[in-house]
Design a protein around this nucleic acid. Structure first.
Lengths: 99, 99
DNA sequence: TCCGTATTTAGACGTTCTTCTAAGTATCTA
DNA sequence: TAGATACTTAGAAGAACGTCTAAATACGGA
């Protein structure tokens, strides 16, 4: 699947959008994230995997825990797509700028 | 369904995103839109209905034709949600501004 | 090396989504 | 008012999705 499509699909679920909002505050382990929802851990794990496939989040093992964080680079990129699709803004593509 | 969720779902499909891009160029009838896709008219009609439910497009009958256009007000609003969710920008809520 | 904790993977089940064909509704024109 | 055109609605089939329970894997500590 094209990555852009995967990313929009990832954003189409309310649970996953809430996970993104949580990770905007701070990095969290899978367990900490699961605590915020009325849902089993396997279900949250599945959602985290969707976000990972879409490259919206990154995971890193720290001992027994797996810490999830926002992939800010891709989040910026996605924002560019979104602006392009929804409001007609073209990406400027200025060099040397982080996005 | 919460309208915000419906809107993100509407944006999660590539066909619907292409319809939005087409309507950014100019208003089009259902038939003109359908011509741009390898898909039956009923299928396109269904996608147009999704976009209408999400308030992303408006429709207006002109004789035999139904003309679709972008609902720019809502598109701006959605962009605000998107920025809020994905990049942490809060809406400013400045009064008197159109959005 | 065995046990407990953290997390994922596998498999199943019901729901929602996308698409199709067939049939219906609305409008214009003769 | 009958026929043609534009579009939608209805109903069905298959794929994708979200959730669950049960089982597997990975790691740390006794």
């Amino acid at each position: 699947m094209a990555i852009i499509n995967e990313t929009f699909k990832a954003l189409s679920d309310a649970t996953r959008r809430k996970i993104i909002r949580l990770l905007r505050e701070r990095d969290m382990t899978a367990g900490e994230i699961a605590e915020q929802f009325n849902m089993t851990k396997p279900s949250i794990s599945h959602h985290l995997n969707s976000l990972k496939q879409a490259r919206l989040v990154l995971d890193e093992r720290h001992g027994q825990h797996i810490v999830y964080s926002l992939n800010t680079t891709v989040v910026q990129e996605v924002m560019g797509w979104f602006l392009e699709i929804v409001s007609g803004e073209e990406e400027t593509g200025r060099e040397g700028e982080q996005r």
